[in-house]
Write a protein that binds this DNA or RNA. Structure first.
Lengths: 192, 192
DNA sequence: CTGTACATGTAAGTAGTTACATGATTGG
DNA sequence: CCAATCATGTAACTACTTACATGTACAG
């Protein structure tokens, strides 16, 4: 039973959506299309392949639901094991350096599956990567040879503009996420 | 010999780098790492697989170069057929809607392989996609249910911030690219 | 004498894709 | 009556990855 330690992004993403409630493969495909399509959207057939795998690994359970008028469906529910695997992923901020953008956004979107501190840590790690990238881009800009074609220059400016805007967003997002960790006592206080 | 009409992004990317001059597989991997790594960077082994394919399709030619002290190498050169395939790709702005960001940036970077009008058309198409996306995001923002978790909200704000910054960049980049089409006569004029 | 750069490739595996198959129900 | 929605899946394929294999030369 040696559980193969790591799952793929798609597997985690499905697990994350499952954490929002019991659903069928079809539901998941629709939910993905409507919410996180910009960061992740596998084909339906891929979802149907992944779900039984999650069950085999004990991360989810399935149950048949009979329906009148429409085909029967299998609905899936995340297990405690599944939840803890998801939480571990959401808490892991030592992300593979490249394409971190999409992955971060996906984790942020699914952050409901872990304690609110996790989202903040992801944000800080993301900021770190952005700042490193900013320094790389600024260095590139400084060292651009005089004969560099404009295309390289404008492409670099694109990168710089995006990184800077994203860093500004981080400053905006942080207090909002902090509020979820230590909710501001404003009038009445709400627990948990 | 029915030439399979379309190439993969990786194949076009390699063709694009090849347009910059004769190079070996090893050279290409290094060049990619140093320039376009943020938008595209396949493994070396993939490059070594693609190159003979390009030769088989008549898009490139190869020639052996003996070296003293180091292993012999094969250097590849783009053919006229290859150039026109590349140009066609660089001119095609009806891009598959999603993940257009990376692809656009790649084309922009390799835009030297086509007449300067192509880059401008790509930019306009990109702007169109960004504006459509902006409208979608703004619509999403307007229709956010009151119980939407903050994570969805801040993720959306991320998208909005990036799209807006990128649109601002477009306005900045356009005149620069326009100048390459109709070079401003400032002092001496340079042809071609 | 160890690690890095140069240089090319194979083998095995994976994560994903598109296209196909099936079939009932509902809305225009 | 036609198209879309609901619902699940298989088959065939593809692009790409990691790990491995091999070997020289040079710098520290």
């Amino acid at each position: 039973m040696e559980s193969s330690n790591r799952l793929t992004t798609t597997e985690y993403a499905i697990l994350g959506l499952l954490a929002g409630g019991e659903s069928s493969g079809y539901d998941l495909a629709r939910a993905a299309d409507r919410s996180i399509a910009y960061m992740w959207s596998p084909s339906r057939s891929q979802i149907y392949k992944v779900l039984p795998r999650l069950v085999a690994w004990g991360l989810a359970t399935s149950r048949e639901v009979e329906q009148r008028g429409r085909p029967d469906k299998a609905v899936y529910r995340i297990t405690p094991t599944g939840r803890s695997a998801l939480r571990a992923w959401l808490e892991d901020d030592a992300e593979d350096p490249e394409r971190g953008g999409d992955l971060f956004l996906l984790k942020l979107f699914l952050a409901g599956g872990a304690p609110p501190e996790a989202a903040l840590r992801q944000l800080e790690a993301y900021r770190g990567r952005l700042e490193r990238r900013l320094r790389v881009f600024e260095e590139m800009e400084r060292e651009l040879p005089d004969d560099e074609p404009i295309y390289g220059r404008v492409a670099l400016a694109h990168g710089l503009a995006q990184v800077r805007a994203t860093l500004a967003w981080v400053e905006d997002a942080r207090p909002q996420l902090e509020r979820t960790v230590r909710p501001r006592s404003r009038g009445r206080t709400r627990r948990s």
